[in-house]
Structure formats: C-alpha cells, structure tokens
Amino acid sequence: MIKITSLTKIYRVGKEMFKAVDNVSLNIGAGEIVSIVGHSGSGKTTLLSLMGGLTAPDSGSVVVDGVNLWSIDDDQLAELRNSKMNFIYQFASLLPTLTALENVLLPTMFSRRKKDKKDAARLLDVVGLADKASAYPAELSGGQQRRVAIARAFINDPGIILADEPTGDLDEDTEAEIIGLFRHMNREQGITFVIVTHNTALAAATTRTYRMTGGRIVVA
C-alpha cells in the first residue's frame, strides 16, 4: 500500500543542514494499523507529511498503491490526496468560516465523489457531535474540534488515514471511543491507518509500531 524507500528530508536553517528524516525505508500493507512513536522533534510529522505527498523528499521515494508520488504532476497528486488518503493533524485544522458540518464536507468540494450533508451528519454522529453540526469551530472545545477533523478524514472514503497525534487533547473516554472507531473503520472498510502517537494504549492497539529517533526508524 505504502512503500517507502531510503527517504531523506533535509531542512536547511541558515548554513546548518538538518536531517529531519534520515534514510527511512518501510512498507505498510493494506489494512494495517501502524503506529509511529518517538520523542518530540524526532521527525514523525515530517515523515507523515512525506507519506501524504505534502512535502517533497530530498531523496528516496514514496509509492502509494503503485504510484510514485513525485513522478506525477501536481494536479494528479492533489487528486490522489483527495481520493486515497486523508490527514488528521496535530493541531486545530478546521476552517473558522465554516460550520462543523461544512468542515466535514470540505474535501468533497474537490472531488467527483457524491457525498452530501447526510453523510457528513452521520460521520458527526459517529464521533459524538450530532448536535454540533451547525456550530462554528470557535464555539467548539479543542477536543470537539479534533473530533470534527476526524469525521472529516473519513468523508471521502480514503484508503489511508494519516493521523498525527489524533487523541492528543481528548479525555480518556473519548480517546477510547476514537481508538474503537479507528479499529472499526479498519475492520469494516479496510482503511489503512498510520498513527503518530505518544499514547501507549493507542500504540498497543496497532498491528505494528515503529519508533523514531533523530529521523531514523527503529522497529519497536
């Protein structure tokens, strides 16, 4: 599903060269739930962004479903991002001008797939926010915003979900619910998950766990 080969991402800060991701190779099969753990600054978010085609590597390749992300043009890459994978970010990622429901529907704006308000409302219901459909992000708590973002990640029926600390600001009960949801989606729809987490419970629930230190991957 996702095949990463000798992936390296270098940041240049002034004259310093900094390898945020250092020669990483890994294979993630369809239907897997993989977790990535590691200290802050170890390169987890950078790796996830490379997998999702949000940033170009300095060397190495990312192949998703047989497509090398950096051999296709930008429009094709955008279409691939829209249809194949979705992100759940570490930070607040809702558009402040849109209601919760509209935020969930946002990815459909750029796709040919037919999804309507009913689908969005159902997803909001699944994350426990049925009554907040017409609320704006400013009217939601951090955890509620996070759950809207999670609902949004599923709207386009992506094959892959790349989640960056998805349970970061959720209480234990909600966290357990979200983990349950991920496992449910994985089982029912065969969605592949790559989850960056500090949370041991979440990591334990995954099929495989990688540990990152200083941009390198070590299997935990």
Binding site: D74, A78, L106, F110, S111, N156
Partner: peptide
Amino acid sequence: GLLRAMGAKRKN
C-alpha cells in the same frame, strides 16, 4: 495548506 492537503489543486 489544509485545502491543498485535502485535494485542492493549485488552480482551485
């Protein structure tokens, strides 16, 4: 950036 990550093209 978020819109682009969701699949918005440059022209969008």
